Simulated scan of single mutants.
Amino acid sequence: MRRARCGARDPVIDRIVAIKTVTLDAHDAEAQEEIARFKREAQAAGRLSHPNIVAVYDYGEEGDLAYIVMEHVDGGSLETRLDAGERLPLPQVARVMDELLAALGHAHEKGVVYRDIKPANMMLTGSGQVKVADFGIARIESSTMT
């Protein structure tokens, strides 16, 4: 099972997008679980529309590759910034927490329990806005898959 992330340009809409891919292997039970988690990520994030959640535009499978096309976030993760020694001023910490809680509240209202909050999954745009990403282990209400 191989995962990759890259940026691309959508030529029809003329926008930059992010593409997350996973290689499909129908003969490996562990790979099948990974594929199910990948689809669940697209389903969970795809049902949400919120300014603090990375938007999912498309999911598909082509040959031995599954992909999710999503909003490109022009900044890095909170983890990257913290690992580089950057410390956020207290007012920005309060804003980050407010936006994170707004995103999680919206997800819960739509029946999605996120379950993987960590700095690596919190993207910060160039202007400092929070975008929650990676819904791979989210639980979707009315689904037994987690």
Rank of each mutant, 00 (worst) to 15 (best):
A107P: 02
R115V: 13
T144P: 09
A103P: 00
H108P: 04
D25W: 10
V96H: 11
R139P: 03
D14G: 11
R37H: 09
A29M: 07
A31G: 07
S49C: 12
V69E: 06
K118Y: 13
V22D: 04
Q92H: 14
K118E: 07
T80D: 15
T23D: 09
K39V: 09
A8R: 07
A66Y: 00
P11Q: 11
Y57I: 05
R95Y: 02
L100S: 04
M97S: 10
V54C: 15
I19G: 04
V69F: 07
R95M: 09
M97E: 02
V93S: 06
R115L: 10
P91D: 14
A107M: 03
V73R: 03
S143P: 07
I19P: 01
E34V: 07
G75F: 01
K20W: 01
E61K: 09
G85Q: 06
G128P: 10
T80Q: 13
D74S: 06
L48V: 10
K131E: 06
D10I: 06
K110H: 15
E71S: 05
K131S: 08
A36G: 08
A31C: 03
Q32T: 07
V22F: 02
R37E: 09
V113N: 01
A138H: 03
E86I: 14
Y114K: 01
R40V: 01
G46K: 04
L65P: 05
A94V: 15
H50G: 01
E141V: 05
H27K: 12
L24D: 03
A94L: 15
T21Y: 08
P91M: 07
I137G: 04
V56G: 00
A44H: 04
A36R: 15
R81M: 11
L88T: 07
A8G: 15
I19T: 02
Q32W: 00
E86H: 13
E79A: 14
S127Q: 15
V113T: 14
D58Q: 13
T80H: 10
I35W: 09
S127N: 10
V69N: 04
D98K: 10
G60L: 03
V73L: 01
H106E: 09
E41A: 14
G63Y: 01
K110E: 14
A66V: 02
R115I: 15
M97Q: 02
L90A: 12
R115E: 13
N121S: 02
G63N: 06
D10H: 09
M70L: 10
E34A: 11
V130L: 15
S77H: 08
Y59G: 04
G136H: 01
S49Y: 07
V132N: 00
A18Q: 13
I68G: 04
R15L: 10
L124D: 04
